[in-house]
């Protein structure tokens, strides 16, 4: 028994060499990753909206607190393993060693304490960043009704009377209210990572997502939830511009676009993939509400359909 062990022990590379190899490997890998990331849009870190930057801040807070306990724990584990290795003759082997009451208390108390640190951040953050919570601002918000279809996004601007497919333009520093629903599509998820987190778009429901952009630019948006063959192509551009640019875009759209009535809508709603950007003006007023109503199964739900969907529970 013993002898076959010592034979194997000889094959063990020394700790120093292992650490060196690991260190070299990891730094080379880190360097490679850093190089590849240069100039790329790291959407969640490059937050360009008030919500997204708060979400980023929260991610960093959580990461810091957890790493503060996880890294020492893992290092302690490795250190213990190395310290009490078989070939280390000076370490005291003590198989009858018992753990004391203090140890038991500590191993429960320590993680509990860290989780408390996280918990006190979790509850207020969840309330503060609840997607349907209106954003405080001196400017009145713009409402955009969003419909997920197979496999495209329809954006209706009820106040401006225009609608767009796979393209949404919003003014900077103005609160935007997205009212998400879906038609003839499975659950989809509406996500513009640079601006805010995602929320599901479902038939028969209106999920409200508030956000406010803080920097001009074109940002990628897409469905994050699998919803069939055209899933990968179900993406759109979210353009953030100045207020003036936004208004002139609305005017331009009104001049160049065609009508979105019920008949046009019936064609639009049919499954199609990788749709090009299109625009409509004017838009049938009842289109959105009718679409939501179509999926209501009962009488008692009908009243809530018009009002805001506050969550199902």
């Amino acid at each position: 028994m013993k002898s076959s062990l010592s034979a194997k022990q000889k094959n063990n590379p020394s700790l120093g060499r292992t650490l060196l190899r690991l260190g070299t490997g990891l730094s080379a890998f880190g360097l490679l990753i850093a190089m590849l990331l240069r100039g790329k849009n790291i959407a969640i870190l490059d937050a360009k909206g008030t919500i997204a930057s708060q979400q980023r801040g929260l991610i960093f807070y959580v990461l810091t607190v957890i790493l503060a306990i996880a890294v020492p724990t893992v290092i302690l584990l490795y250190f213990t393993a190395w310290r009490y290795r078989e070939s280390h003759s000076t370490a005291t082997y003590h198989p009858e060693a018992k753990t004391g009451k203090a140890f038991i208390v500590a191993i429960w108390a320590l993680p509990t304490f860290v989780m408390l640190l996280l918990a006190i951040a979790l509850v207020p953050a969840t309330h503060k960043l609840q997607p349907n919570k209106a954003l405080a601002s001196s400017t009145p918000p713009i409402t955009i009704q969003v419909m997920a279809m197979r496999w495209k996004w329809l954006f209706i601007y009820p106040d401006q009377q225009i609608a767009t497919v796979n393209y949404v333009q919003i003014p900077k520093d103005v609160p935007i209210v997205f009212d998400l629903t879906a038609d003839e599509a499975p659950m989809s998820s509406f996500w513009i990572p640079n601006l805010s987190g995602q929320l599901y778009a479902m038939t028969g429901h209106i999920n409200r997502l508030n956000l406010m952009a803080s920097e001009n630019g074109d940002y990628r948006g897409r469905s994050a939830e699998i919803n069939g063959a055209g899933f990968a192509g179900m993406q759109f551009t979210a353009r953030v511009s100045s207020k003036q640019d936004f208004e002139s875009w609305v005017d331009m759209t009104k001049q160049s676009a065609s009508t979105l009535d019920k008949a046009t809508y019936q064609t639009l709603v049919k499954p199609s993939e990788n749709n090009a950007v299109t625009a409509f003006y004017p838009v049938d007023d009842s289109l959105y509400a009718d679409t939501v109503m179509k999926y209501m199964g009962s009488h008692d739900h009908q009243m809530t359909a018009q009002t805001q969907h506050e969550g199902m529970y």
């Binding site: 979400q55 929260l58 959580v62 957890i66 953050a125 969840t126 998820s189 805010s196 987190g197 994050a224």
Partner: peptide
């Protein structure tokens, strides 16, 4: 598993999950 645990705790925060869910 620790890497998975740390990322899991981030995902436990609903506002962080809005950004990272389905990603």
């Amino acid at each position: 598993f620790t890497i998975g645990g740390v990322s899991g705790l981030i995902l436990a925060f609903p506002p962080a999950d809005f950004q990272l869910h389905n990603s």
